[in-house]
Amino acid sequence: MGNNNITLNDLQAEVDQWIKTVGVRYFSELTNLAILMEEVGELSRLMSRKYGDQSFKAGESADKIPSEIGDILFVLTCLANQMGISLEDAIAGTIQKNTNRDLTRHKNNPKL
């Protein structure tokens, strides 16, 4: 995955290849969901220390935030692969849904 211009379809294919060679097989969907929640928790812990009121514990560092985001993306990609979901289609649908819903909402929000 050294290519900086990787598409989401490429990402899904590369993760699938990694799982089938290095990882042997996919964990079950529920196991991967639990792993995803764990990874989100790890990101949350670091974010709360960098941007919130908590201080870092010994050995913790905001430098690990990109790695945690990568872990989340990896496991989310595994789940999409297992369920036959195209990440490109999923994000395109979400962007369209949000655009339709929020076309004027944020522009008219005096808090923003």
Rank of each mutant, 00 (worst) to 15 (best):
G2D: 13
G2I: 04
N4K: 12
I6C: 11
L8M: 12
N9W: 00
N9H: 12
D10S: 08
L11T: 03
Q12R: 09
V15K: 09
V15L: 05
D16E: 11
W18A: 05
I19L: 07
K20A: 08
K20D: 00
K20S: 10
T21I: 07
G23P: 12
R25I: 01
Y26G: 12
F27I: 00
S28A: 04
E29F: 12
L30N: 12
L33Q: 05
A34N: 08
E38D: 10
G41D: 08
G41N: 10
L43H: 06
L43F: 07
S44C: 10
R45I: 04
R49V: 01
Y51G: 02
G52W: 08
G52A: 06
D53I: 15
Q54M: 14
S55F: 06
S55V: 11
F56I: 04
F56L: 13
F56T: 10
G59S: 00
E60G: 09
E60D: 14
S61P: 11
A62R: 06
D63M: 12
K64D: 15
K64M: 06
I65K: 03
I65L: 01
P66V: 07
P66K: 11
E68T: 11
I69S: 10
G70C: 02
I72T: 07
F74V: 07
C78K: 14
C78E: 15
A80L: 03
N81M: 05
Q82L: 09
G84N: 09
G84Y: 00
L87F: 03
L87E: 04
E88L: 01
D89I: 03
A90G: 12
A90L: 12
G93Y: 00
T94S: 14
T94H: 14
T94M: 15
I95R: 11
I95E: 14
Q96F: 10
Q96V: 05
K97Y: 11
N100V: 07
D102R: 15
H106I: 10
H106G: 06
N109K: 09
P110S: 05
